[in-house]
Design a binder for these strands. Structure first.
Lengths: 369, 369
DNA sequence: GTGAAAGCGCTAACAG
DNA sequence: CTGTTAGCGCTTTCAC
């Protein structure tokens, strides 16, 4: 008993969109192959035939079963996305860019979060792999020494890093801003405003190579001006109130006049801690963030920050991955309108896209008292 | 030329995890069916055999192709998730609960955002349907008059609403807090603090049935105390600075002494606007938010808010969907530890889960001057 | 241009 | 307990 024939002959496919391509083909009086072609390569099919197939499909409220095509085509047209968390708006903004770009290009998405945890990174990537994603857009804790990235390379799975900035001479692909350079610029703006004693506040360094790179940028700026770079204050978690540590740092005669926080969420927390300590921002002390999340522009005073183009980072990461597939749809290759300042090095190099950053000053940054 | 045989006999499956179950079966000296069972129903297979299969799988770095099983099983074990945006932390927090609960139960996820746009809601849901998700967790603009929800009902696609609170006598399933009741409580707290002139600030009403329900709660509270409920101030967008409108509202002799904002993001914006107008919160004017996003506790003064258990809303929505499937894994049915205060009505009713809310007071709420 | 046939990788009767 | 067999819905040679 062949169920397929059964249902396509006697059993009417229910209205719920459960008709298969066989049903459509039959209703249109063509073969399965032609029906398929009418959807995927209409150019190969006579116009009238295409129309008949499309009509039949509408009639039966045919809904293509993507599971079938993805399996058969040996190409899932799916992109796996792994981000540390969505609760930091940076990544939520990035997701918007990813979703727009991928769906516009006809790709499906599968999202997982790693919570900055390497073990979970491994596990979640395995999950993506089992779903046979064609490639991935990833933000990992530490791109330079990531076992899971090495594994992906070994298996030949295409991926593009987002936010992680691939090493210049490495083989990895990435889309980010110039973390170190932009941080240097930000701190230079602090110095230009008159600050001399500047401290860095960061999340856990092990959880973010970006944080380390931004700290390097801070050192660059300090040294360029003959100032002493102080060690960073690494806070274990972004969300807890770290008033004590901030207080200890902010007290004393040689207290810093400005803080550079390696991300905006952290900066907002630090500003609150400072307020609780009775310090006014930016009157008593300045705070510069990093990320440029929309929320930063919403608070009062507006959060000064090194601004990343988050949705563009996501969109470009997708576009670059598509390019790696050799399939970059023309329409999505540069949706952002942002010029490509990629640097290419070596043979068969990793493609490193550096997107321009911005500087949002004023607000929480002012001249020292 | 049968490729399958070719590769399983002569061609060694490459190390990249491209071995198929056939390869594993062969390597283990069992049939395809037994290999499959060793993974899916090991209880049906002799222990030693299971072990041989598992060993062979490890040997070949076998990675099950979920596309194959999902297609064949006529059950994708995938849950489609549609949220308005992730850029409001409410939904990002909710996603965490969804991801944890779904993956723990062995389900895969597919996420899309609707941007509060009904047209996009339709389109994105169609996308999910084409992927043959078994069911969905959705937050829609307006659950009461949603064409797309009606369509889903008609097609018999199981879904559970998150945040949207299904009508008491309807057939829809939902997980949320009691929007109206909790808003009433929040406003009552304002009244208890001495406020009499309280205004509601909301996002676009059409984009959120929750906002309307929360406004009703405000009216309830005001009327219960013989106070006059004023119409809401509906702001078109959450992110723009609406200082002008807020300013107009906050000026004059009969200016409100407190604002109730229907979500936290909005509240943070309003507070900034107020500051820009030279008003101090809560000294000159109090602000109460709604959502209880983590960020609210981070700012100074802490944002007073009606607190929703966001990750639990997500986790419970998943659990309830699983229950609808008749498959709720025991371990995930009440991960949150929050008691189930569901109300059930009528025959074959929509199951409405109301999760307890909290009230975070102090901070931006104080007695009127 | 169109059709017939093979099969993507896997699960699930049905036999033994 | 294990193997044989028949497809899930679709794409894609290969013929005509």
């Amino acid at each position: 008993m062949k169920r397929t024939q059964d249902r396509s002959s006697s059993t009417a496919p229910d209205a719920a969109g459960n008709a298969t391509l066989v049903d459509v083909a039959q209703a249109a009086g063509v073969s399965l192959a032609t029906a398929s072609r009418a959807f995927n390569s209409p150019a190969l099919v006579r116009e009238g035939t295409v129309q008949r197939v499309l009509d039949a499909a509408r009639q039966l409220s045919f809904r293509p079963n993507l599971l079938g095509s993805k399996l058969r085509a040996q190409q899932s047209r799916m992109i796996g996305v792994m981000l540390p968390t969505l609760e930091n708006a940076v990544f939520a903004e990035c997701w918007r860019g990813i979703e727009d770009a991928a769906l516009a290009a006809g790709y499906s998405l599968m999202l997982v979060t790693s919570a900055y945890d390497p073990a979970r990174e491994r596990e979640r990537i395995e999950y993506l792999l089992r779903h046979r994603v064609d490639g991935m857009v990833l933000t990992v804790a530490d791109a330079a020494r990531s076992a899971v990235l090495d594994q992906l390379d070994a298996e030949g799975v295409p991926y593009v890093l987002a936010y992680n900035q691939a090493a210049a001479r490495g083989q990895r692909h990435s889309v980010s801003v110039d973390n170190r350079g932009s941080a240097r610029e930000g701190v230079q703006a602090l110095i230009a405003a008159g600050h001399r004693r500047i401290r860095v506040v960061s999340g856990a360094f092990i959880a973010s190579d970006r944080a380390r790179q931004r700290f390097e940028g801070y050192r660059d700026a300090m040294h360029a001006h003959g100032l002493e770079a102080a060690p960073p204050l690494c806070l274990p978690t972004h969300t807890a109130s770290n008033a004590d540590q901030i207080g200890a740092l902010a007290a004393g005669p040689d207290a810093p006049t400005a803080f550079f926080c390696t991300n905006d969420l952290l900066a907002i927390g630090v500003i609150s801690d400072l307020k609780r300590l009775g310090l006014r921002v930016p009157r008593d002390i300045s705070v510069l963030g990093y990320d440029g999340i929309a929320l930063g522009a919403l608070v009062e005073p507006p959060l000064a920050s090194v601004v990343q183009p988050n949705p563009e980072i996501g969109a470009r990461a997708v576009a670059q991955l598509l390019a790696r597939f050799g399939l970059a749809a023309a329409g999505v290759s540069n949706v952002s309108g942002i010029p490509d300042v990629s640097r290419v090095s070596g043979a068969r190099p990793g493609r490193i896209t550096l997107l321009p950053h911005g500087l949002r000053l004023g607000g929480t940054v002012a001249a020292p008292a």
